[in-house]
C-alpha cells in the first residue's frame, strides 16, 4: 500500500490572463492554511504555483490549474497540476536547468519551482501540451 498516492480534487481555476496568477496564488494560500501547512511550506507552494502559472500563460497560452489534496497512507499534502495545450517543451532536462529560457524572463521559473516543492512531475509533448504536477507534504512534526 505504501507509495500509492491518492488525490482528491479541491478546486479548478482557468488561467487566461495575468490577473489569474494572483487568483491561483490566493487559492493555493487558502487551501494551504486550511490544511495547516507551515508558513514556510505555504510560501514555497504559493511561490512555485505562481511561477508555474506564469510559465503556463507565457509559453502555453494559458491553461487550467487543478488544486488537490494528496494522501499517501497517513501522510497529507497539498498539490496542484498545471496543464496547458501549448507547444510542449522540447527538452525537459534543459528546461529544468537554471538559466534556461525560451521566452521572457531569466529562466529560473521551472527549475526554481522544482526546488521549492517535495514532489515534481512533468509530462510534455507537442500533441498534448505540458502538464506539471507539484505537491508539498505536511511534515511529520505537523508543519
Amino acid at each position: 500500500m505504501i507509495g500509492v498516492v491518492i488525490t482528491t480534487p479541491l478546486q479548478s481555476i482557468v488561467v487566461r490572463q495575468d490577473r489569474d496568477i494572483s487568483v491561483v496564488r490566493r487559492a493555493v494560500s487558502t487551501h494551504a492554511e486550511r490544511l495547516n501547512l507551515s508558513v514556510l511550506s505555504r510560501t514555497r507552494l504559493v511561490t512555485a504555483s505562481s511561477e508555474l502559472t506564469r510559465n503556463m500563460l507565457v509559453y502555453g497560452g494559458g491553461g487550467v490549474v487543478e488544486l488537490k489534496v494528496y494522501r499517501d497512507g497517513e501522510r497529507l499534502g497539498l498539490g496542484a497540476t498545471f496543464a496547458d495545450q501549448g507547444p510542449g517543451i522540447d527538452n525537459v532536462e534543459d528546461a529544468l536547468a537554471d538559466g534556461f529560457t525560451s521566452g521572457v524572463g531569466l529562466g529560473l521559473g521551472l527549475g526554481g519551482a522544482r526546488r521549492l516543492v517535495d514532489q515534481f512531475d512533468i509530462q510534455s509533448s507537442e500533441v498534448t501540451g505540458t502538464s506539471i504536477s507539484v505537491a508539498i507534504w505536511l511534515k511529520d512534526d505537523g508543519r
Binding site: 514556510l40 514555497r44 511561490t47 529560473l108
Partner: peptide, 14 residues
C-alpha cells in the same frame, strides 16, 4: 521582507 519569503527567494536563486 518576511522570513519565509526571504528563504523562498534564495531557494529560487534570487
Amino acid at each position: 521582507m518576511q522570513p519565509a519569503v526571504a528563504m523562498t527567494l534564495v531557494e529560487l536563486g534570487l
